[in-house]
């Protein structure tokens, strides 16, 4: 079995009858922040949601391992309890107070004592009494989602564009939190488009690129970011694609 905390081995994902991820391979070690980049619609969110186990993202081939545990056929809540957590790109508006969402998650994972600290750190106090994700600004959505991940104390964190729509100050805070998670040994798979978040991260590891549902590995995260920011994805269109 692989040494990685998260190991995605040749998975193909189907949504609504369409193949959106093709034979993807990817590893993230404990304590590593791996980044996943790629143009809009290339399948990054689909890959993350399939790893998390959302039912509409059907894994029709391949396997997902959390450490040595094959989670491919587990429902999402069991994957969550086993240690996978996702910060969604676009969570749905819930008919549930933000405070309750946080409290229930904290109860589930025994992190009640960290709740106050997390809420303060990401500046979410003003949202607690409101139904979660109802009329939240772009940045508020991202911060609240990060909070749910922090509260579930995962082994593997899937972060889907946690920085889009987030202001400079909050981006730095989020970067610090991601680093802090990595330092504690969390394996982090981070989808991002912009440089600012990545530049603020210290625990960077590998960089992956996804194009048209296929993944290619581009050396390390920092080089990948530089190349993408300078030249876009044209370098990845040819032979790099597996």
């Amino acid at each position: 079995m692989s040494q990685a905390s998260l190991s995605v081995s040749g998975i193909t994902v189907e949504v609504d009858g369409t193949i959106v991820v093709k034979k993807a391979n990817l590893d993230v070690r404990s304590g590593e922040i791996a980044i996943l980049m790629g143009p809009n619609g290339s399948g990054k969110t689909s890959l993350l949601r399939a790893i998390m186990g959302f039912p509409s993202y059907k894994i029709i081939a391949g396997n997902i391992y959390l450490d040595s545990l094959d989670v491919t056929n587990l429902p999402s809540w069991e994957r969550a309890k086993a240690g996978i957590a996702i910060a969604n790109q676009a969570p749905p508006a819930l008919s549930l107070k933000t405070k309750w969402l946080f409290q229930k998650i904290a109860e589930k994972y025994g992190t009640q004592e960290e709740l106050g600290k997390v809420v303060n750190e990401i500046m979410l106090q003003h949202l607690l009494e409101r139904p979660a994700f109802n009329g939240f600004s772009g940045g508020e959505v991202k911060r609240a989602e990060i909070a749910t991940v922090m509260l579930s104390k995962p082994k593997v964190a899937l972060l889907d564009e946690p920085d889009s729509g987030v202001d400079v100050e909050s981006t730095k805070k989020i970067a610090n939190m991601i680093d802090a998670m990595a330092k504690k040994g969390v394996a982090i798979l981070l989808v991002t488009h912009a440089g600012m978040l990545v530049r603020n991260l210290k625990m960077l590891g590998r960089g992956y690129v996804m194009i048209n549902g296929r993944i290619s590995q581009g050396s390390n995260a920092r080089d990948l970011l530089k190349s993408v920011l300078e030249e876009g994805y044209r370098n990845f269109r040819g032979s790099d694609i597996q």
């Binding site: 039912p55 809540w77 549930l96 589930k108």
Partner: peptide, 19 residues
């Protein structure tokens, strides 16, 4: 909403009652 809560670790019954 149900699938969201399930992805946070709540089984279907728990997620329904939360909602």
């Amino acid at each position: 909403e149900l699938e969201y809560l399930e992805s946070k670790g709540f089984n279907e019954e728990e997620a329904v009652s939360l909602l």
